[in-house]
Design a protein around this nucleic acid. Sequence first.
DNA 1: CCAGTCGCTTCATCAGATGAAAATTTAGCT
DNA 2: AGCTAAATTTTCATCTGATGAAGCGACTGG
Lengths: 250, 250
Amino acid sequence: MKTGAPGIACGAVATDPQRDSARHVQVVQALGARIVGGSLVPGTAIPIEEELVGELGVGRSAVREGVKVLAGKGLLETRRSAGTIVRPRESWSLLDADVLSWRFEPEPRPGDIRVLADLRVALEPGAARVAAERADAAAVRRIDEALAALYATADDPEPFIEADLAFHQAVFAAADNDLLLYVYEMISIALRSVRQVHTRSVAHNKETLPGHERVAQAIRRRHHRKAEEAMRTVVEVARADAEQHVRLCC
Amino acid sequence: MKTGAPGIACGAVATDPQRDSARHVQVVQALGARIVGGSLVPGTAIPIEEELVGELGVGRSAVREGVKVLAGKGLLETRRSAGTIVRPRESWSLLDADVLSWRFEPEPRPGDIRVLADLRVALEPGAARVAAERADAAAVRRIDEALAALYATADDPEPFIEADLAFHQAVFAAADNDLLLYVYEMISIALRSVRQVHTRSVAHNKETLPGHERVAQAIRRRHHRKAEEAMRTVVEVARADAEQHVRLCC
DNA sequence: CCAGTCGCTTCATCAGATGAAAATTTAGCT
DNA sequence: AGCTAAATTTTCATCTGATGAAGCGACTGG
């Protein structure tokens, strides 16, 4: 063999030597990021296999496997002898963890922040309502624990963000609905990458505590109407904050 | 060569000679259905590559590509020299179109019908609310057209189902939020496979018309409060119907 | 009984060969 | 000259073989 393929480091993060350094994962990341980032536009063809082999420094098998993974996520479509084309945005698996990461990292567009904030407003009050209907004792306890963590971390911006995500996740978990919980897990992936929007002053964090308290209390008392209303207040405050943030810094 | 691999027909559906007959797609379908269906349980290893080659009648490349696609959907994890294991359910991309199909087809479990109904109750009122906030004139027009189609098909069970799905999709589309719309597209995949739950009497279909009418009217008038409430009524009726259906026939 | 080493299993990756289908070009005919 | 049909080229599809790497277990020596 002449192509020193194993020597090409690609400057990737290389966190886990097993999962992330796999050749086909390199291909998935490279092409996926380009497609979702917009430099490969829907309807156009990506470079042919042979070119990708040279460009990415991997073998044809790795290219094929990577392309197949992206096709499985709706991003690509291969046609024999006609090349591999980028599928229209409507075909993408928008709530796939990878697709979402490529969209919101490293820097989401202002429009995407609005999409995210609206999604929370649309989803979270209803989720809180179902949580109040379905929560069992253990689920209520986990919400209360998450609430306590929220109070405990109100002075530390970074841990507070994680505690906030954990609280909302506990609410979704209480709804006893894996699809609903999955949606929130995807939301939290996106939220983590717009954390700067959430990293407000410590005083601001403390202002959000009563709202969360009301959500937890309503679920504890199985008051679905109140749970929904309290959660709506929380996420609408978050949406207003996000809008203001976008207006100020963009 | 001796193994007449190209001759193995596998008796698949063969709808599209390009997309569905691809060897690696066979692998994805076969393994994906087994995993989501529960015959391959999380934590256990799937057969080794060589066995899958024999069992599925495809080459090793096809097996590898298929396994990579399923790994991309969070269903599998390959470890060098340790085989390929089924990942825990929490890792699955539950809102992937394929995963959802394997779960709800051919016959969803009663519990999954409840999950679906709850998801709609949690999601659709909020979506209708955001739709009322964000809908532009064109979106309102599309909702009205979908409503008209609903009235026009009230006497035909089959077209009525499609018109119903189209109406709800138009509401989600009006919210101008691609993530929200994506969730509904996945819901509609699942709903189509539980259509028997929805195929009620013609009289019952007609009873749902006023509710839909109220939703459309509230959005038209940008009355988000009313839109939410009207939609909640619609989906809670649907949930009650589904619950009753499950209780009667299961 | 424990520890270290060796070998086996199994996935990872590349390379080559053959095939098939679609797009493009070319040649021939009217 | 224009159109049609055949030939060619491009490009992905698939199988096979070879080599490598990493984990797991068995076996042996102290």
